[in-house]
Nucleic acid binder design. Structure first.
Lengths: 120, 120
DNA sequence: GAAGTATTTCGTTATTTGGCGAAATATAAA
DNA sequence: TTTATATTTCGCCAAATAACGAAATACTTC
């Protein structure tokens, strides 16, 4: 029950759902997700920790960046939650818009994300 | 997105999830759910209205009772949410305990629910 | 019509949540 | 070592949420 409520609460916020779906395609570091959502880094960090605690994302540390991604082996409950979210929202305009904007961000949002160096 | 968030928020509270799963087997009126959850009637009413607005339950009025039940034809998104909750929680001790207690309540919880008359 | 029961609505209160900025932490670059 | 960047933690505030009791509403029964 605790695990279920952690999942449903994690999915009960638009910013978290947007971040989660953005991570469906590829791993992203916090500053990329921050650029996508347009929220303060501390806020995004909090959102991501909630997704992480629910088991909906996993983290990998690379240099001074922390990449969030879909978990390699999620619990069935989390996988089902993710499948539900994906099926429910892939056609949603906001999500499609995010996918497009994310391409631009990945093409190196000028003056904001281009200080990076080696990031694989 | 609005619909999805209505669903995830509806599932993000333990009392609502317990009520929802209790309704899987049979329709129940508000006072029966109130007896099950042990909350104030006004609180239960509010919870049920949230489930209703999310499309997870439907209502049928019978005399002075209002029966809540699983919807006859729910939207795909709601059906999937319900399936997720059911699969995730049917084995949970709290839910099993609720199912047992509900049997007692239906056998007419003394002094509290026996004022009823014709209820089909 | 009066009284009683079931439910909802309203107003209040305590808690949680989501947001921010500042400070702390960690790593890389100069 | 100093500086810069990425991220998290902390403290604060505003808004949303869950709980209750009282009052309003709807329907039955007397």
């Amino acid at each position: 029950m605790r695990a279920f409520l952690n999942l449903s609460r994690a999915l009960a916020d638009q910013a978290r759902v947007r971040a989660l779906l953005a991570l469906e395609r590829r791993a992203l570091c916090v500053c990329q997700i921050t650029a996508l959502l347009g929220l303060a880094p501390s806020t995004v960090s909090k959102h991501l920790s909630i997704l992480h605690q629910a088991g909906l994302v996993e983290t990998r540390k690379t240099g001074r960046w922390i990449y969030y991604s879909r978990p390699r082996a999620a619990a069935p409950m989390a996988r089902q939650a993710l499948a539900w979210a994906r099926r429910s929202l892939t056609d949603h305009p906001r999500v499609a818009e995010d996918a497009r904007r994310l391409q631009q961000i990945l093409r190196c949002e000028p003056a904001k994300l281009c200080q990076r160096q080696d990031r694989s």
